[in-house]
Design a protein around this nucleic acid. Structure first.
Length: 371
DNA sequence: CCAATTTGACCGCT
DNA sequence: AGCGGTCAAATTGG
């Protein structure tokens, strides 16, 4: 909605689009190559082929991986180089805002939180869900307001993290039902979760399936709700995998699952190759995996420092510098991003049907329901 | 009794 | 001035 995909940023927006187009091309070709190769079984062994085929597949996977990382970096550069669409929204006052925020903090409450990273996702709920249904991303939210919005048929609900007071978590979200499609919700997130539930979600091997998940939304719960930081983290992890030989990739033929890695950044960077306006439509039956999918929802070693890092000043948009420093920094978690995509992890932790293309709907447990 | 939700009022931004 | 976002008192539910 607010986030217009048209924001090309600086003057070299065209060349960046060209670069992205080329990279996407290469990625598609690598994916085709992977499709042509014989599939691997559960242990990652190639079926009925010799070491040559295995080598080819490994190279193809690496190739795909490399293209995705390149795309992610290009998008980060694009975002850093100019006004991202989001910065048009809140970053328009980034500098001024910081000063104003300081002023306001001296005198009273700051009612607007323009400084926090903000992005929008679309949720599609099942057709048989009742009208009271609201999107559930697995986090615990507390409603603090509702308002009729001009030009919208449905009121907008305002939610903040349940642990806002207890743990100082600044994450908020706004939920608005789409006028055009009753089954679609526009959910705008602002600020990353810094509360323990985010860390617990990140560390928990298998969150308990809540009973209320009968009609859950087809999306993953972002343990890390700052897409820019997701990008950086993903990128860093992506670099790590480069040196780790050939990890067992979870692609099921067409590799759409892992593709979300590259597009995870699009919501943040505002670049949307599909012209989706910086949003991700999260719906079942489609092949598009939500940006949050790439968040380390099922990872470990994301302690408080991790989240502290994630929450600091993403709106100041030093994306490129961050990417570079992140790329060169040591990786304390030592995490392989491809592990995010491993089917076992997905099945174990993600509430959405991650591979609708392959008819293996995992049990949908969206709501965490912890306290 | 406590926590969550509702709802009108308030406030900042454009 | 109007709109959107937040606050906080009142209400509701477990």
């Amino acid at each position: 909605m607010q986030q217009d995909a048209g924001g090309s940023g600086g003057g070299d927006g065209n060349s960046m689009h060209l670069l992205l187009s080329i990279l996407a091309d290469g990625e598609e070709q690598a994916r085709r190559l992977l499709r042509e190769l014989p599939p691997a079984d559960d242990e990652g062994q190639l079926l009925g082929r010799g070491p040559a085929a295995q080598c080819c597949r490994g190279v193809a996977e690496q190739l795909l991986c490399t293209f995705r990382k390149a795309i992610a970096v290009a998008k980060a550069i694009e975002a850093a180089g100019g006004d991202s669409p989001r910065s048009a929204d809140e970053g328009a006052g980034a500098g001024r805002d910081a000063a104003q925020a300081q002023e306001r903090q001296g005198q009273g409450v700051c009612k607007r939180r323009k400084g926090l990273p903000r992005w929008t996702e679309k949720f599609r709920i099942p057709d048989d869900a009742n009208l009271e249904y609201t999107p559930d991303d697995g986090f615990s939210w507390r409603k603090y307001g509702q308002k009729d919005i001009l030009g919208a048929k449905f009121p907008r609900g305002y939610y903040r993290c349940t642990y806002r007071n207890a743990q100082g978590c600044a994450a908020t979200r706004q939920v608005q039902r789409s006028d055009a499609d009753l089954a679609v919700f526009d959910v705008t997130y602002q600020g990353a979760h810094t509360c323990l539930q985010a860390q617990r979600r990140a560390a928990a091997p298998s969150p308990p399936p809540p009973p209320s998940a009968a009609h859950d939304v087809q999306r993953s719960p972002p343990a890390l709700q700052d897409p820019e930081m997701q990008l950086l983290e993903n990128f860093r992890n992506g670099l790590k995998v480069e040196t780790d030989g050939l990890p067992p990739l979870p692609f099921h033929g067409d590799g759409t699952t892992a593709f979300s890695f590259a597009y995870a950044a699009t919501g943040a960077a505002g670049y949307s190759p599909a012209g989706s306006g910086g949003q991700q439509l999260l719906q079942g039956g489609g092949c598009f995996v939500p940006a949050s999918f790439s968040s380390p929802a099922a990872t470990t070693s994301t302690g408080p420092g991790y989240f502290a890092h994630c929450t600091r000043g993403a709106h100041e948009s030093p994306e490129l510098a961050e990417v570079v420093s992140a790329a060169t920094a040591s990786d304390p978690a030592g995490f392989d991003y491809s592990m995010y995509l491993h089917q076992h992890d997905l099945d174990a932790h993600l509430p959405f049907q991650f591979d609708p293309m392959f008819g293996h709907p995992s049990s949908s447990h969206g709501q965490h329901g912890d306290a």
